[in-house]
Amino acid sequence: MQLAFQASGFFCIAVLGGILLMLLWNSIAFFTDVPLFFFLSGTVWQPENQQYGILSLLVSTLLVTIGAMAMAIPIGIGTALYLAEYALPVLRNWLKPAVEMLAAIPSVVIGFIGIVVINPAIMAIAKTSNGLNALNGSVLLATMALPTIITVAEDAIRAVPQAFREASYGLGASKWATLQKIVVPAAYPGMIAAIMLGIGRAIGETMTVLMATGNAIAFPKGMLSSVRTITANIAIEMGEVPFFSTHYYGLFATALVLFIISFAVNFAAEKVTAHIRKFQI
């Protein structure tokens, strides 16, 4: 039986290694055609004109992700603090599963909401004629990252030993001062991990951004420009790319970039979570 578990463990690692190898292999094939420098510094992605610059796709991805985090972090951390410190147990038992339910909504449905609800809303508020842009994608991705951020951050806050709080109260500190000076610093690494996981969730999302951000390949000028993220670009073009062409290999190269980013984010999250464990006595 142990052998079976061991085998399944090795199988997972083999799959990961296989994917990485395939990405690398195809990317190398791409970089023999297109120099790495042009790939990383080019702003135009137009395979039909042999232009393979990832910069505008990369900036679009980062723009949408940063926008999403600007919304999701304050709301997510605030909700987590409320749930862990202030909410009555009865309320908390209702709220937490409700928040987790958000994660169960399929991304296509969220994308659809982006088209029919957020799109007209942005048009009305920002007085623009087009609401399918980076801001729309950010709002949707923030919604999708919230459950991850709230759940992980709340666990981190609750993991702060009760003795810390009691010691603080014993010294005469108020609830707010305790929260600010004791609980948040103690739970800090866990909150960072929560945010990192949220970023990981947002950066790899495909369907939602594909539906809501307009997918123009122009270099983004701001949150109100239509953007095309790396994930959306792969989803759009993979369907009809001639196999084993430069374009085909190029899509793997963009996938490799995406893999490196989300790997770095998850790795960083892993590092800080390891740090929290040291924190608890």
């Binding site: 135009v44 039909e48 048009m123 123009a216 390949i217 239509s226």
Partner: peptide, 26 residues
Amino acid sequence: ISFCKHVLEMNGNAQIVEAIKLDQSG
């Protein structure tokens, strides 16, 4: 021609029609 980079790329005819209905300058 070669389409300019600012063309929004939508997933199908229905999405284009719905977007145009909302967009005065579309």
